[in-house]
Amino acid sequence: MDPNRQQPADSFVSPALVQSAAGGDRSAQREIYERTCDLVFRLLVRMVGRQEGEDLTQQVYVQAFTKLEQFQGTAKFETWLYRIARNEALQHLRRQRVRKTVPIEIEPTTRSEPTIEQKEIAERLQAALRQLDPELSTIISLKEDGGLSYKEIAEAAGIPEGTVGSRLNRARRELAKLLKAEDR
């Protein structure tokens, strides 16, 4: 990646930081991790659950730092990272399907305890998301959790920008339906 290239606006990660991290600078890698891990982790928890989400978060960053030289700098660094996260999660879900059917489990939380109501909401949403097509749960999480634009979602999910709106429509309709069914 050209370190003089202008990184797209509002990225948390500068080209110079990427360059240092690609050279094996652990403090630069750590800085990138700390600036970006919240959303990557959240996306993965939405897709695969908390315990697997932790493991996959680690894998995503190990993989990202291993092939950092492939990052061209034409898109936001975060978008490139989300794409790796999405691919890892999909691969994980495929492997899981090959091995066995995993029941949907609501996993216990470990840190600051949310209120009972927040917990219930999170559990309901998590259960519904796990029933959604993984491609759709990725897209809706990138939008709702990450606030990404349609262009960024298209880059992260590897789909044409023109299809993001219709896929979000589908994701939202199916999710609303699943949540409604749970209420009954």
Binding site: E54, T110, R111, I121
Partner: peptide, 10 residues
Amino acid sequence: FRESVPAETP
């Protein structure tokens, strides 16, 4: 989504 931000940290 906003109300159900996972409480866990990465």
